[in-house]
């Protein structure tokens, strides 16, 4: 989609606003948006995850010795750089290959890294019934949270368990 202002450059900023009681969306390129005084989210983010990914890139060198940005997932060949550009991972194995930065990203995106929903039992192909085993899962996660001194998560899990029991 091209910019509604200059009709030349690609529109990268989509501004929803209310004008004369109508909700309208303006599609602008970065330059025209800046002229209109609309704050640009910055040059790097190309995806909805942009900010997170950009932040992740900055922190990577200090925080995570393995894998380095240039390393590739052994299963699909994708790299963190590919992920930053497309916002998408190449395969399920990427979650293992890039576990450290992804764990950090998941925490920032969702406020947690622990799946608390229905569990898929591989092999048998059946679901664990959602009620009782779920409490067991929560207890296990609570134990882990206490062990790793993640008290915020522990308190949250304790509250959930209280509601269930």
């Amino acid at each position: 989609m091209s910019c509604e202002q200059c009709r030349e450059r690609e529109a990268v900023i989509h501004l929803t606003q209310i004008v004369n009681e109508q909700v309208t969306t303006l599609h602008l390129c970065e330059l025209c948006a800046a002229e209109k005084g609309v704050e640009s989210p910055g040059a790097s983010p190309k995806t909805p995850l942009g900010t997170f990914l950009a932040a992740m890139g900055q922190e990577l060198p200090e925080q995570t010795p393995v894998p380095r940005t240039g390393d590739n997932c052994p299963r699909c060949g994708g790299s963190l750089q590919d992920f930053r550009e497309s916002g998408r991972l190449g395969c399920s194995e990427c979650y293992r290959s890039f576990e450290v930065p992804l764990r950090d990203l998941l925490r920032r995106l969702h406020g947690s890294t622990h799946h608390l929903g229905e569990r898929y039992a591989e092999g048998s192909g059946s679901f664990a019934p959602p009620d009782r085993p779920r409490a067991t899962d929560l207890r296990e996660q609570l134990r882990l949270a206490v062990e790793t001194e993640n008290f915020e998560l522990a308190a949250e899990l304790r509250d959930r368990l209280r509601v269930m029991e």
Binding site: L106, H110, G111, S112, T113, H114, L116, E118, P130, R134
Partner: peptide, 9 residues
């Protein structure tokens, strides 16, 4: 968000 809460929640 899709992680950290059950489907029900």
């Amino acid at each position: 968000t899709t992680l950290g809460s059950s489907e029900f929640e």
